[in-house]
Design a protein around this nucleic acid. Structure first.
Length: 480
RNA sequence: CGGGGCGUGGCUCAGCCUGGUAGAGCGCCUGGUUCGGGACCAGGAGGCCGGAGGUUCGAAUCCUCUCGCCCCGACCA
């Protein structure tokens, strides 16, 4: 990757984002495959870290990993009416295989509820078989009309949880438990504050009874749906005849859930923290937490500097950038744009004074510290940086969240921010959960992001569209 | 899928209007001097101009089609 300038964020947010992804060596468009991307080593390492965090939490809650086929018989999609309606426009279908036209085409999975339903029906007979708690790490394909790296690509990586329960309450508890896991990973690991809530009926997953989401705000004020958890009710249970015999000997359809987060999280991560110098990664997710740049001018300085550099780097688990023929300055820029949280400088002056220079990626502040304290200081800085990134994002979310009490006010606020290069705000207003209301908001190119689980505002009020009483304000925003 | 923009060495782009067989800067390779925020000198490698047709004696340049990327919209994690 040649290192080129990064478009300033305030000049063109979309161009900035793309530059950061490219210059941070996270991914690049797979220009030979429409709408797809190559996730590069630096990006994939972040995904692996996210996988590790999520997978451990899923397993701690009793889930097991499984793997279902990539190809799904086309007829499966049609078994749940709303599901097929929601997904058919974005399906990729295999009609020829082995040189022959297939009798029944396969769709490449856009999600796996249908094929999971089929197998759940085989595996579940008794209430003793429940709950079934599965997760799968997989790729899916959705033929999108417009793509952006990480945020929306034709193929993407995700995890999809699929569970079956003997009653609705237990399923709902599962849905909310997972939503908490998502929020925890987003906030504690990604340093990305989110709002947990219920999707409006108009925005819910095709085939679900209810969808829940975590919504994050990007640096331009647009919303990003960062994770979803669905209460599928008995819809798929009925469509695929997933039945169990209850304790009374009666046959019942199971209650299912499904939930997922994808590589989109990486897009959210980038748009939450990065700056005009490039990528900024929170310490807990950064593949490389620190790089040490050795500095020497005379040949006789080289040996001692490198020796000390490797000794200190080993102690910290840092990487030494000992490439020849690159000036220290060039190295600083290189690691800066790749989002490495801490860059250490060690030169003859430091050797003489037993010091080392430590620089934070987020604030850009340099600190000269004693070599004997570097271990403790390093850990503290990573910890502080993790917290500071979260706090900054949280402050931005709060600063850009406003209250509106009429449709006109919502329009006004959104029009104002949109005028500034496609920016956005979160507008809190009373809106009834009715597709008619969603449709009105769509006129402002905004949607109900979700109805927060926790009401941080002033309780009930009258819907700004219908005038009917609703119990709390919802989040309205333009979104990715 | 509609509207707009863009595809020329690895990267950023000039050349196209007015056809004559390809350039610059950066990067890369070799050697040397450098090294505390993008070093310098010398030498060198690298491009059938996104692809396919057409017009022409001759096409990066003109025409048609096509593929991809970016932006705006409609659809969506």
């Amino acid at each position: 990757m040649a290192e080129s300038p990064i478009t300033p964020r305030e000049k063109d947010f979309a161009a900035w984002y793309q530059d950061v992804v490219l210059q941070g060596d996270m991914a690049e468009p797979a220009e030979i495959v429409k709408g797809c991307m190559v996730i590069k080593a630096n990006g994939y390492a972040v995904w692996e870290n996210l996988q590790r965090e999520l997978d451990g939490r899923f397993k701690a809650l009793g889930h097991q990993n499984v793997y279902f086929p990539l190809l799904i018989p086309e007829s499966f999609l049609k078994k749940e009416a709303e599901h097929v309606e929601g997904f058919s426009p974005e399906l990729a279908v295999v009609t020829v295989a082995g040189g022959k036209e297939l009798e029944e085409p396969y769709v490449i999975r856009p999600t796996s509820e249908t094929i999971v339903g089929h197998f759940f029906a085989k595996w579940i007979q008794s209430w003793r078989d429940l709950p079934l708690l599965y997760n799968q790490w997989a790729n899916v394909v959705r033929w999108e009309l417009r793509t952006r790296m990480f945020l929306r690509t034709t193929e993407f990586l995700w995890q999809e949880g699929h569970t079956a329960h003997s009653n609705h309450q237990e399923a709902v508890e599962e849905v909310l438990r997972i939503l908490d896991v998502y929020a925890e990973v987003a906030e504690d690991i990604m340093a990305m504050p989110v709002i947990k809530g219920v999707k409006s009926r108009a925005e819910k997953f095709a085939g679900a009874l209810r969808s829940y989401s975590i919504e994050a705000m990007m640096q331009n004020g647009l919303a990003l749906q960062a994770g979803t958890s669905h209460d599928l009710g008995q819809n798929f249970g009925k469509a695929f005849d997933v039945q169990f015999q209850n304790k009374d000997g009666q046959l019942e359809h199971v209650w299912q859930t499904s939930w997922g987060v994808s590589t989109r999280l990486i897009g959210g991560l980038i748009m939450s923290h990065s700056d005009n110098k490039g990528l900024v990664l929170p310490p807990k997710l950064a593949p490389t937490k620190a790089v040490l740049v050795p500095i020497y001018r005379k040949e006789e300085e080289k040996g001692p500097v490198l020796e000390a550099a490797h000794r200190i780097a080993k102690e910290l688990g840092a990487k030494v950038d000992d490439r020849e023929g690159q000036s220290p300055g060039a190295k600083f820029f290189h690691w800066e744009r790749r989002g490495v949280p801490v860059v250490l400088e060690l030169g003859p002056r430091d050797l003489a004074s037993n010091n080392i220079v430590l620089k934070r990626r987020d604030t850009g502040t340099k600190e000269i510290i004693s070599q004997s304290e570097v271990g403790v200081k390093f850990a503290t800085v990573l910890d502080t940086m993790q917290k500071d990134l979260y706090n900054a994002a949280k402050a931005r979310l709060q600063a850009n969240t406003v209250v509106a009490n009429s449709l006109g006010e919502v329009e006004e606020i959104l029009r104002e921010v949109t005028a500034e290069k496609g920016g956005g705000k979160f507008v809190m207003a009373h809106v009834k959960d009715d597709p008619i209301c969603d449709a009105r908001l769509k006129e402002f190119k905004a949607t109900v992001r979700n109805i927060p689980l926790v009401d941080e505002y002033d309780g009930a009020g009258k819907c700004i569209v219908t005038g009917e009483e609703v119990d709390r304000r919802v989040v309205i925003a333009k979104s990715y």
